[in-house]
């Protein structure tokens, strides 16, 4: 009886600590789970970091992994969510030859229709930036690929959840102990 493999977004609030990334990624590695994307940044609370990790696993595994992550001393809280429980986006950049911008009118249309933003233009190249869902970014990449892309890069997913995280309450409770 195999459970459904789904895309889960794992959100982790942690102390800002050298080595914690290693500790958290080891939890996935041990179980032979491929991490689709991983982003870490400051969270809404000063001094507290937030990891957003996307993995394709079954819910049972997601649940166990989140417990293992929470068990780490410097993890404040960890959660897993399905796609419809989060609001998420990715961002990407394209570096493209500048002559194309002037010689290929099609490109200008593509940029306009895709809501991409021109970050910079110089004699040799221009840089486009776009954020959105994976399929939007992929379709833009396909469209631009026809003309040639000098460089392409896409970020990992960032996501906020629809439900509350209550980290501040948790930390306040500790301070009041």
């Amino acid at each position: 009886m195999k459970e459904d493999i789904k895309s889960f977004t794992i959100s982790i609030y942690t102390e800002n600590n050298i080595g914690l990334l290693n500790r958290i990624s080891a939890i996935f590695q041990r179980r032979h789970i491929n991490i689709e994307s991983l982003t870490t940044s400051q969270s809404e609370i000063d001094g507290v970091n937030r990891f957003v990790i996307v993995v394709n696993i079954c819910e049972d595994t997601a649940c166990k992994i989140v417990k293992q992550i929470e068990k780490q001393v410097e993890t404040i809280r960890a959660y897993y969510h399905t796609e419809d429980q989060t609001i998420f986006t990715e961002s990407c950049m394209f570096k493209i030859k500048s002559d194309l911008l002037f010689n290929e009118p099609q490109i200008q249309n593509i940029i306009k229709e895709s809501n991409a933003r021109i970050v910079t233009v110089n004699k040799e190249f221009f840089v486009l930036e776009k954020s959105g869902r994976r399929n939007e970014i992929e379709s833009l990449r396909r469209d631009l690929n026809v003309f040639g892309i000098m460089q392409f890069v896409r970020s990992g997913r960032i996501a906020v959840t629809k439900d509350q995280m209550k980290i501040t309450e948790l930390l306040t409770a500790f301070n009041n102990q």
Binding site: I18, G19, N22, A26, V73, E74
Partner: peptide, 14 residues
């Protein structure tokens, strides 16, 4: 050693 011991310690630091 911090990297090596990470998966087998409850906590470690340098």
């Amino acid at each position: 050693i911090v990297g090596i011991s990470t998966p087998v310690t409850k906590w470690n630091c340098q």
